[in-house]
Every structure is written in structure tokens, then in C-alpha cells.
Simulated scan of single mutants.
Amino acid sequence: MSCRLPSSLRLALAASAVVLAACAPDSVRNFQAKDFNAYLDSLKTACPNMVMGSSNISEWLRTSGDSDDSNYVYWLDQTSRLYYQRISVKEYRNSTSAALGGRSDAPALDCIVRNLPANRSTQLPGGRL
């Protein structure tokens, strides 16, 4: 028994999938981000004891986080935005500290910012803006 969808419905479903993929946070599309992933790996050594509020960022980096943890997903997305220069350091500090319950001048944020590569890309992997 075959179920055939009308072509207009198939087109609408395909368009919806494209729109949803484009709106996915950077943390979801992170698998293509080799330079960003290398930066995150470097933080494991450079910043071994990062804690913001009740969130242990260093533990997230050691265990690749938990995609069901909204704080982890938010931190990863904001850190990606900072890395790709889509938000300023000040915006990163303010948004991350507000979300994780820390201070915008927290040592964890200082270390993350201090270790940003100077020549990092402004282009997201896969050609997305």
C-alpha cells in the first residue's frame, strides 16, 4: 500500500525542513566546525576549572555536554557566536553570565575570551552566514 503526498504538500514539507535547519543554533550545526571544535578542545587545557553559577563548563568540555541541558546548549551557541564574531565580547559576557547565573567578569569568561584565536573566521562552516 503506497501513500502518495500531493506535490504541494511535499514541497511545503521540504521548505519547512530547510527553514528549520537554517534556524538551528550553531551548537546543533557544530559537527562541521573543525576550527571551533579545536578552540573548544584548547580550552580544556587552557581553562581547566571553568565554573559559572552552578554550571561546570570544564565538565561540559570533558564530556561533550548534554544536549538536553539548556544551559549547555545556550553556552555552546553563544560561544560559537563569539568565536565567529557574530556577537561582541561584551554581548557574550553579558548574555552568558545572565543565562548561567554568574558575573560578566567571571574568571571562566576571562579565560574563554583570552584564548580566542586572533585570526578566527567570520564565516560559519558550510557557507552559512
Rank of each mutant, 00 (worst) to 15 (best):
S2L: 14
P6N: 06
S7M: 10
S8I: 05
S8F: 07
L11Q: 14
A12F: 07
L13V: 09
L13I: 05
A15E: 13
A15L: 07
S16F: 02
S16E: 02
L20A: 03
A22H: 13
A24N: 05
D26N: 15
N30M: 09
N30K: 10
Q32F: 12
Q32W: 11
A33P: 14
A33V: 14
K34G: 10
Y39W: 03
Y39V: 01
L40A: 01
S42D: 15
L43K: 09
L43I: 04
T45S: 14
T45L: 11
N49K: 10
N49W: 01
S55Y: 02
I57R: 02
T63H: 06
T63S: 04
G65W: 02
D68L: 15
D69F: 12
D69L: 12
D69G: 04
N71E: 14
Y72F: 13
Y72K: 07
Y74F: 13
W75R: 08
W75I: 04
D77P: 14
Q78S: 12
Q78P: 11
Q78C: 14
T79I: 06
T79M: 15
T79H: 07
S80L: 02
R81L: 09
R81S: 11
Y84I: 03
K90R: 10
E91N: 02
Y92W: 04
Y92G: 00
Y92H: 04
S95A: 03
A98N: 09
A98M: 08
G102N: 01
S104W: 00
L109E: 00
C111L: 12
V113A: 00
P117S: 06
P117V: 08
A118N: 11
R120P: 13
S121Q: 12
T122I: 03
Q123G: 03
L124H: 10
G127F: 15
R128N: 11
L129K: 09
